[in-house]
Amino acid sequence: MTIGQILFNLFALFTLVMAAGVVLNKNAVNAALCLLLCLVGVAGLFVGLNAYLLAFLLLLVYAGAIVALFLFIVMLLDTRGDARPTLNRLPLVARILATGLILGGVASFLQRGRLVSPDIAGTVGVGAALKPYAYQLFTTYLLPVQILGFLLLIAMLGVIVLSKKFVGMEDIK
């Protein structure tokens, strides 16, 4: 096992542990910080796969901006950890069924999901450098980029419609 593979496995384990922490933590601030570390782990995985640009974008956008936003909102709402609904009320049959399905899925995935991978160090990831990525974005994938512009516009309008105070609505009526 090369040092790259060992690091990759370590980062994968770290990501999984932190993802479990997001779900299991009762305190919302701790959960958000676990999410931050989970994203750092995923960024580490991307670096291991030579996708440096993706790793950088993930840290910049998700870890930097979005988790900070989550933390702001959590602090503004001042949620208490004990207000969480418990899952104990699920019927026993449902619990056994769900556990069985998940275990069966994971087992079959481990058993049959093996894929012979080529040497990752030899291949250059698509998300490795900014220049080819930008070329692709503005030639091949120009249409999706334009649609995303509209997506952001309606998302912004939605925020305004759903949260703004109605002022002067009588005029429109």
Partner: peptide
């Protein structure tokens, strides 16, 4: 007593997205 115009705006954008969805030939699209 609601803002009206945004409703029609969103309906139009959603319709355009549906039309592209029905013709998409690529999972990114």
């Amino acid at each position: 007593a609601m803002p009206r115009i945004e409703f029609y705006h969103i309906v139009l954008v959603v319709t355009a997205a549906m039309m592209l969805l029905a013709q998409s030939n690529h999972f990114v699209m």
